[in-house]
């Protein structure tokens, strides 16, 4: 299952990622990081909708998002 990992200490809750996610899986959580910013998260219920397209990471100004895409069945993806 593809997923996005959020480095919460970096996120500033700007929500630009939420404007580009095709599946709208990202939204503001009520958790606050040590700098006092509310951080984004992917709610449990939406996790399997993530396609690993990394649009969110492309626009993140704080380099807070790491994206993993699952390998579909036999498709050989050599590790980049």
């Amino acid at each position: 299952m593809s997923r996005v990992e959020i480095r919460e200490n970096r996120c500033k809750g700007c929500l630009l990622c939420t404007t580009v996610c095709p599946e709208e899986v990202l939204c503001l959580s009520d958790r606050m990081n040590s700098s006092g910013y509310k951080v984004v998260h992917v709610p449990e219920s939406l996790q399997e909708k993530c396609k690993g397209c990394s649009f969110c990471a492309e626009i993140c100004p704080d380099w807070a998002l790491t994206v993993f895409r699952d390998k579909k069945g036999g498709q050989a993806h050599e590790k980049k």
Binding site: R3, R10, G13, C14, D62, T66, F68, K71, H77
Partner: peptide
Amino acid sequence: QTEEKQVFRLPDVLADTATHFCPGCHHGI
């Protein structure tokens, strides 16, 4: 279950750190 692959990589020349920029500032991009 299935193997996963990291698809979005940050280059080493980009420091592994938070920035001082304001939320939503495009300088970071």
